[in-house]
Amino acid sequence: MSQTKNHVPGEVGIWVFILGDMLVFGLFFLVFVYYRGLDVELYRQSQAALNQHYGAFNTLLLLASSWFVVMAVENARAASGKQAAKLFSLALLCGAGFGAVKFIEYSEKLAAGITITSNDFFMYYYIFTGLHLLHVVIGMGVLTFLIIKARSPQFQASDMVLVESGASFWHLVDLLWIILFPLLYLMK
């Protein structure tokens, strides 16, 4: 990773989106904590209905996927596109695993009669994790695109901007979950 100083990862434009998203999710987090403060007991009781293991497992999946992406970017820089494609595929697999776990988790909650209108806590739970899941799905699309790019024989150094942009977006997906997890599942 011998990068010169003052190198913006990916194209500048993607950072408009990433920072914009961080700003908005930041606001979401604050809204949640503020309203939680108005009715702490309800939030504590509702939180007890969540399965921390699903959340923790998903945290690990996203960390692993982020790490695969980091290695993929390094490989892409070293012009070994094939290896990069393999690592991106592993990251994609982790993303799919995250989606599967979320699917199981949602169906369990719904089977137990817990929906978006159950109470305020579950309203935030469904909306925030749903929006995050949307990011995961978009990110998986981005990863698929990167896999195709990295596999093509014409893969070249000028494609690095695309690779870095896509990778940065995937890390954003990981980053948002790192706060959502303690906020929704663990906070006492």
């Binding site: 990773m1 990068q3 010169t4 100083k5 003052n6 190198h7 913006v8 990862p9 982020s66 790490w67 992406v69 980091v70 870095e164 990778a167 940065s168 890390h171 954003l172 990981d174 980053l175 790192i178």
Partner: peptide, 13 residues
């Protein structure tokens, strides 16, 4: 950590 190392912001402007 994710921002600085994974997203490589530590090399950014």
């Amino acid at each position: 950590f994710v921002i600085r190392y994974f997203m490589e912001v530590r090399h950014a402007p």
